[in-house]
Amino acid sequence: MAAAEPEHVAWLTERQVARAWPTIRATCLNATANANGVRNTLLTANSTWGESKWSMFHPEDVARVAGAIADGTAELQPHWRNDTPEAKLLDRRLRRENLPGAIGCALLIAIPLAVIVIFLVLSWNDSGSSSPSYWH
């Protein structure tokens, strides 16, 4: 009897899984996959900036869990979904926690920009008054 040839599987990326599971938060894809028995593999690559790791998921398992999510039988925590009251509460909390950083980034851009504009306005006004040829 001949040995069975290994099955060729076109593993799915996280982006493809996110499209297959639109009601699941992108940050919770791995947790959802692990809770529902989705086969996955972790790939690693080295580059100039260090090691990168990403997960790839088995397409049959992803399709099975997509059906389970649709009919409500998937093993899910409420905050993993993006359409539950818990998820909305989490979104509000994250926005509140990230607000100081957003304000800091805005100030980091606005203050140097304001200084440059003031400098340009002052230098433009000074250039006309210093030349006696403008006084006729």
Rank of each mutant, 00 (worst) to 15 (best):
E14F: 05
R19M: 09
R81G: 06
Q16G: 07
H136S: 15
T27P: 04
V65W: 03
L108D: 12
L90Q: 11
W11E: 07
A2W: 05
P78L: 05
V65G: 00
C105Y: 09
H8W: 09
M56D: 06
T44H: 12
R39D: 02
I24L: 01
E75H: 08
W21I: 03
H58C: 04
W11Q: 08
G72I: 05
I118P: 00
W49H: 11
A18M: 05
P112V: 07
P100T: 04
D126Q: 15
N98I: 09
I118H: 12
L94I: 09
W49G: 12
D91G: 05
R64C: 06
R95D: 02
E86D: 01
V38K: 01
R93A: 14
L12E: 02
A45K: 15
R96H: 05
D126S: 15
W80C: 02
R95K: 09
W124F: 15
N125G: 14
W80I: 02
A106V: 07
K88E: 13
T41M: 11
G101F: 06
A20L: 02
V117E: 10
R39M: 07
P85V: 05
A45T: 14
L12N: 05
A106K: 10
L122G: 10
L89W: 10
A4Q: 13
R19Y: 10
T13L: 07
E75I: 01
N125C: 14
G128M: 14
P59H: 00
N30L: 11
T27R: 13
D71H: 08
W54A: 02
S131L: 13
